[in-house]
Design a protein around this nucleic acid. Sequence first.
DNA 1: GTCTATACAAAGATAGAC
DNA 2: GTCTATCTTTGTATAGAC
Lengths: 202, 202
Amino acid sequence: MVETRDKILDSAEHLIQSRGFSAISYRDISDEVGIRKASIHYYFPTKNDLAVAVVERYRDVLAKLMAQSYDAHGSDALSMLDDYFGVYLSFQDQPERICLCGALAGDYPVLASDTQMSVDEFFLDHENWLKMVLETGESSGQFKLSGSAGEIASWILVSLQGALIVGRATNSPQKIIEVQSLLRRSLTAPSAIGGDIQDAVA
Amino acid sequence: MVETRDKILDSAEHLIQSRGFSAISYRDISDEVGIRKASIHYYFPTKNDLAVAVVERYRDVLAKLMAQSYDAHGSDALSMLDDYFGVYLSFQDQPERICLCGALAGDYPVLASDTQMSVDEFFLDHENWLKMVLETGESSGQFKLSGSAGEIASWILVSLQGALIVGRATNSPQKIIEVQSLLRRSLTAPSAIGGDIQDAVA
DNA sequence: GTCTATACAAAGATAGAC
DNA sequence: GTCTATCTTTGTATAGAC
């Protein structure tokens, strides 16, 4: 049986992803869950309490996914990268939604400080994990890095977050696939293959 | 002398950039401009009217910048690209702000349809201009494209927008410089220079 | 063109019955 | 735990005087 608390979190999560934190209300959530506004306050006294809980749960889900990916193929950086891309690919059949923390980052200055901290840590989690993946791939020879692992990790993150946000506004969900393809290429192709070598040397 | 209408637009613009569209009110603007709420309604009857006007002005400013860049060095793609990067670099000394249309894209589903259209067109303007720059650079040999010009134009746009949004949330304004450096490298370096060639051939 | 005044709806939040 | 009822503030928007 699904707890009321979880239903509230589910509703809040997707409403924030779809409309943004400032634009949603206790009324929106109570309509969806089928309870009264006051009942939400029982679980989450303030809107900020709700925000923190939603982000923490979201962080955990993603952290588990990343940990599982590492367990499954911790020495295969390309597979881990593809697992990470898969998270963003899953937004394709929910074109109204973007990453929860991407959405909250849009409202960042109006969030309470503990919500800000959670969002911040979400991004750092991902950057650190991606950095590990890139270093693994560089060691194994799968990747050829054109900059520091940390910088490229950050680039991957912002590219994908940006693709979700801009892609939603331009009705182009394929942006995510395109970005993934280009990122993959720039990491795996040391370029200058075949006919290009002459140009590179010249 | 600065018109009241322009003061309102100035205030609305930076408030949206800083806090997001849903989070700002006529009161916020009236406080800043020093007039009454009702006076804002004289110029912009509805909040949506205000949003459209702010976006249209912003679009025009950027379109003029891009046109000027083309006039100044229409055959030097690298200079045009650096001009474009300069727009995003200018956010470094205003760390609370992001691109107006990046901010509005975060609220996209709750915007009225004509505001949505303007935001959409803003992004298309930039993609098209970047595509032209990339094609120019490819023709002249300045750039070596690892995908279609359109795809890479989109990638540049989403990378920079993402860098602004995530960079604000992680207090890392240097993300913008890092992304620019990596983008520039991936466009200008056919990689495999010097010692790397052996690896590429192997 | 800017103001005061106000209408009306919606917001977050709390008290207290059940 | 969930409800009804209510408080208080804030929001968008309008009417009409000056």
